[in-house]
């Protein structure tokens, strides 16, 4: 009896705790402080808002519905919020961009789907539903990215790609410190990131260990894409063709003398059996016709 009671109590406590945790989980996003404060360098206006609407309808509306229209996909758990609602609008611009870039649970991330600039446009569209919103612009100057010099060198012994990020300021070349460096390899449908994003050190240097088993083209060439992202200098990228992949030249999947292919590639056993059978029949036919001819010619007794 006592045990039972204890069990019930334990169960109730446990359920409450779970509920609490779940609740917190669905209500808040653990956004890093520096992300939280990120601001758009694009001014939100009618044009950005309407461009954002198109992107929103294509990527977000299937779950979040149209803002304020109450057509959210309610069968999902947790139910996606109406983004024009209070709780969503209470989030900072940086929060919203972070959520777009990371995704969670059923919500996919959009970092490869919607560019940073377009993400701001989506946010611009959403802010249009909040009359109290006043935009704070970031102090970022997009022209500064032209100053960046990005170089990549590969050390084939250690299998390490070393990236140097320098800025051509008036005061001379200075290293770009704590910038995000992401290395990609070009694949048919998109760029594949190698390892994780790293930060440049005090000399503007970052290193990425390359896998040894990455297939390249016939000669082993790989197209390597290096992307830099920095608070002050924005986004910069360079492409290098490096012979660091595994040469790959696999045979075509229909090359073999296989059963699935055209007559020319029929298995020899099928071909010979078939021809043998038809040949035997033709011999039989010739024999019989010859007999009939003899029959026709042999009139007399």
């Amino acid at each position: 009896m006592l045990k039972n009671k204890l069990n019930t109590r334990l169960f109730v406590t446990f359920s409450l705790a779970t509920l609490l945790i779940l609740n917190c989980f669905s209500a808040t996003w653990d956004v890093p402080a520096d992300q939280k404060e990120k601001k758009s360098y694009i001014k939100f206006d009618k044009q950005t808002s309407s461009q954002g609407e198109v992107l929103y309808n294509a990527n977000c509306a299937s779950c979040h519905g149209n803002p304020g229209k109450n057509n959210i996909l309610k069968s999902l758990n947790p139910i996606p919020p109406d983004l024009s609602g209070k709780s969503s609008q209470a989030l900072s611009d940086g929060d919203l961009q972070y959520i777009l870039n990371t995704g969670r649970g059923l919500m996919p991330n959009f970092k490869n789907v919607i560019s940073a600039e377009d993400q701001w446009k989506v946010i611009s569209y959403l802010r249009g539903f909040n009359p109290n919103y006043v935009q704070e612009l970031s102090k970022f100057d997009p022209n500064k990215s032209k100053l960046v010099k990005l170089t990549a060198k590969f050390d084939s012994k250690a299998n390490i790609l070393t990236v140097m990020a320098l800025a051509d300021e008036k005061s001379g070349k200075i290293p770009i410190i704590k910038a995000e460096i992401a290395v990609f390899v070009k694949r048919y449908f998109g760029n594949m990131q190698i390892e994780k994003t790293v930060l440049t050190d005090n000399f503007g240097k970052a290193q990425v260990v390359f896998p040894k088993d990455l297939p390249g083209n016939k000669t082993g060439d790989l197209e390597v894409l290096v992307k830099l992202f920095d608070e002050n200098y924005g986004e910069v990228q360079t492409t290098n063709k490096l012979a660091i992949g595994v040469p790959t030249d696999k045979p075509a999947l229909n090359e073999k003398r296989a059963i699935w292919n055209v007559l020319a590639k029929a298995p020899i056993w099928t071909l010979s059996l078939y021809l043998l059978g038809v040949f035997a029949f033709i011999l039989l036919l010739l024999y019989l016709l010859n007999n009939l001819r003899k029959l026709y010619n042999s009139k007399t007794i």
């Binding site: 991330n109 490869n112 694949r187 048919y188 998109g190 760029n191 594949m192 990455l214 297939p215 790959t248």
Partner: peptide, 19 residues
């Protein structure tokens, strides 16, 4: 979706390419 020879597939929703 992707190419086995490249050892890479790309997600249709997130457009993320992975091995």
């Amino acid at each position: 979706f992707g190419d086995e020879n490249e050892d890479a597939v790309t997600n249709g929703t997130t457009k993320e390419t992975v091995r």
